[in-house]
Amino acid sequence: MSISLKVRGDTESRNLEVHYLPAKINGNGSTDVSNYFSSYTREGQGNLLTNAIRGFPLNGEIVEVPTTHSSYVLQETEFSNTEKSRNIYVTGNFSNFYYWNYDKIPSNGDAYKQALYLFNISKEFSEPVSETDIQIEIENRRKI
């Protein structure tokens, strides 16, 4: 199976407002986010944001995407014959997004923030190590 990623025009110009919600929505479709949701975002003390979805209180903040990464929104059209090839379109990008918790102030204990530690670990694992680095490390160990 092949996947072709299609970019139409300049994605940098299509900066999207993205919300990370603590809920799973069982459905796909378009909706009026700015009127039904964004218009109710209120800023409290210390840049903390509040809002609600379907009556459930949300606490949130604006989170920057790590500078080592780029974020894009991908969309797949329904009618592709999934057996052979799939077409996925890049519909826009974002450099930050709204992170929302259900009635809990965002903290470093949140799973999303914790997951980002993987970047540090994978960097350590995958960075090339030169011969001299190993020699230095061995020397250091001997001293102990």
Binding site: P22, K24, I25, N26, G27, G29, I53, R54
Partner: peptide
């Protein structure tokens, strides 16, 4: 009537 929504807790 609308999409079902499941919260984490």
């Amino acid at each position: 009537k609308v999409f079902e929504m499941e919260f984490d807790e």
